[in-house]
């Protein structure tokens, strides 16, 4: 096991209950593969691939048609990046927008939108029609969100600055809601060891409480028959299965199984003495070694019509 993980013994103890395999720590200590998504609002996948293939080795991401892993330095120095023809985005984080099943004229809420990777992906799937409310609570993060909306050319996005829980007052308003919740970022440790140093069980519990409030607000704002996608880039069950369980226990929500060509781990149905609704088994729990990506958790939730 890489020595770096010894610097946070509380993390090591907890994660021995989640995934204590050497493979897990081996992948967690490797840098992430670079990946990007073609901005379908400005170009076509084959055109961009042709333009980049001379300089870079590209490998298709199996679960996103317009997504590619890229080898070689300098992809962010290319005209394609500068012009907004591609967006650098981690491969597993392309899944939530992919399974949201958006249609061009829908009303979408992206509750925690910055920096806008998923917002701009949704905008492309909607062919720049309909409307997306892209919200974030922090003013400092809105600048980068607005920059990316502008750079990607998304005319169907409105940016708001509210605590996500505020949207609970808009009952049955949105056709689709994406809640990519604030989390303890364990999946991002591959990007930056800072997240390992910052990880505390106390924070996980506080975040879990916040995530439960956010998911309840999101569900209220969702139209009957609508789809809510809940995702985090962490692997702690308290921030994932437990949050989905909280929603299932308190509402008529249901979970749909996510079928994509990728490997995943079985979700937890119990953890540290807490039993969860069996339907959480339909969620997608991705550990870094499954597909050599960031760790990720995704749930596709349906509101009965």
């Amino acid at each position: 096991m890489n020595e770096i993980f010894q610097s946070n013994m509380e993390f090591l103890r907890k994660y021995s209950e989640i995934d204590g395999t050497s493979e897990f720590y081996n992948y967690m200590s490797q840098p992430l593969r670079q990946s990007f998504r073609v901005n379908l609002l400005k170009s076509k996948t084959d055109v961009v691939v042709e333009r980049l293939s001379d300089e870079f080795q590209l490998e298709k991401i199996p679960w996103t048609e317009e997504g590619f892993f890229v080898e070689g330095d300098g992809i962010t120095n290319t005209p394609e990046f500068v012009l907004g023809l591609i967006f650098m985005q981690e491969a597993s984080s392309m899944i939530p927008a992919r399974i949201l099943d958006v249609k061009p004229d829908m009303h979408i809420l992206d509750m925690a939108a910055s920096p806008g990777a998923k917002t701009t992906q949704i905008s492309a799937y909607m062919m720049n029609r309909g409307c997306i409310v892209a919200n974030d609570v922090k003013y400092s993060r809105l600048n980068i969100l607005a920059s990316n909306v502008q750079k990607m050319g998304c005319v169907n996005v409105r940016i708001t600055m509210k605590d996500g829980r505020y949207f609970g007052k808009f009952r049955d308003k949105f056709d689709r809601i994406l809640l990519d919740a604030p989390c303890s970022n364990v999946g991002m440790i591959r990007k930056n060891y800072r997240y390992l140093k910052l990880w505390r069980q106390r924070d996980v519990e506080a975040l879990s409480r916040l995530q439960k409030e956010l998911i309840m607000a999101a569900y209220k704002a969702l139209k009957p028959g609508g789809i809510l996608v809940y995702s985090t880039c962490t692997l702690d069950p308290e921030e994932n299965e437990e949050v989905v369980d909280h929603l299932l226990s308190n509402t008529d929500a249901d979970v749909e199984r996510i079928k994509l060509p990728l490997k995943s781990h079985k979700p937890f149905t119990e953890f540290r003495g807490k039993c969860y609704d069996k339907r959480v088994k339909r969620c997608l729990r991705i550990h870094p070694q499954d597909n050599n990506t960031e760790g990720f958790f995704i749930a596709k939730i349906l509101k009965s019509p």
């Binding site: 309909g130 005319v155 169907n156 996005v157 409105r158 940016i159 708001t160 600055m161």
Partner: peptide, 24 residues
């Protein structure tokens, strides 16, 4: 410049929400 739907939403969802950005 934005879509018609976004513009309608700016006016509809205006109570308590300040304008930050819409469209390009």
């Amino acid at each position: 410049m934005c879509t018609h739907e976004i513009y309608e939403m700016i006016t509809e969802l205006s109570s308590g929400i300040d304008f930050m950005w819409a469209g390009i």
